[in-house]
């Protein structure tokens, strides 16, 4: 479709990956040319703005997802899924351009590292992957009075879904909750399935089980004992264990 027949608008979608893929679908089939793309949560209407709400369609999203895998590559689909979870305000615009370029160029799109959009989106995806990987190690669970293990995190990116996958496999037989304080969201696992819920900003942490303090004490003691005095290196320590992660970590709390 030639671009002069397209309608240039500020697109708003529901914030889900399916919703985003529906935006891509609307571009190719409904003549919608996004000037900007925002999700409903973050959307702030301006006075002069030509906004357009995209209705999420499961079928359209599925079509686009299949097309990305088949016509571009599986790697590009994975990169898109990860970059989607990143946090800069213009992430959706970059991702949109990346996918459109992918359909034009095909599976070699990822070789175009000199291209700013390609480099940017890959970098976003890498950052999401890296943060999620760090949190697979840095999450700290506390046993609550109900026998549920509770963990609070404060991540930059929306990594909850990646963590949910990881811990549903690893801690398959215990109930747990991971609370993303930054995005006011939590994932709840009951020993079989998990679900995402919204959490109020002022939600207090649940009360701890009786022996929890004792175990935390043992861990903190273990952690402190392991350091070798002669090798202490605070600069290196800050580099590999940035302060922002430490707030919710048992061994740094006391």
């Amino acid at each position: 479709m030639p671009s002069n027949t397209r309608k240039q608008v500020d697109v708003v979608f529901d914030g889900t990956f399916e919703g985003f893929l529906s935006v891509v679908h609307a571009y190719y089939y409904d003549g919608i040319l996004p000037r900007s793309i925002q999700c409903a949560d973050e959307y702030q209407p301006a006075i002069i703005q030509d906004e357009y709400f995209i209705v999420t369609s499961h079928n359209n999203a599925k079509k686009v997802a299949t097309a990305i895998s088949k016509k571009i590559s599986i790697d590009v689909k994975r990169t898109a899924q990860y970059a989607f979870l990143s946090s800069p305000p213009d992430r959706y615009d970059a991702l949109f351009q990346y996918i459109v370029a992918g359909f034009k160029i095909g599976h070699t799109i990822d070789n175009h590292l000199q291209n700013e959009i390609v480099h940017r989106v890959q970098k976003l995806a890498r950052e999401v992957g890296r943060e999620a990987h760090r949190y697979t190690g840095f999450c700290r669970f506390e046993e609550t009075t109900h026998g549920i293990y509770y963990c609070a995190i404060d991540p930059v990116n929306h990594i909850l879904s990646i963590l949910a996958n990881h811990f549903a496999d690893r801690l398959m037989n215990q109930s747990w909750v991971i609370h993303d304080k930054k995005h006011h969201e939590a994932v709840v696992y009951d020993g079989h399935d998990y679900a995402f819920v919204n959490v109020n900003a002022d939600q207090p942490p649940p009360p701890m089980a009786a022996n929890e303090k004792e175990i935390q004490g043992l861990w903190t003691m273990y952690f402190n004992t392991l350091a070798i005095e002669a090798r202490k290196n605070p600069k290196l320590h800050r580099q590999i264990m940035p302060l922002r992660f430490r707030n919710e970590m048992t061994e740094f709390k006391n």
Binding site: F223, N233, P234
Partner: peptide, 14 residues
């Protein structure tokens, strides 16, 4: 790939 769960004050992975 291995997962580091913490780092000691001397910068070694735990």
């Amino acid at each position: 790939c291995g997962i580091c769960h913490s780092f000691t004050a001397d910068g070694r992975c735990i």
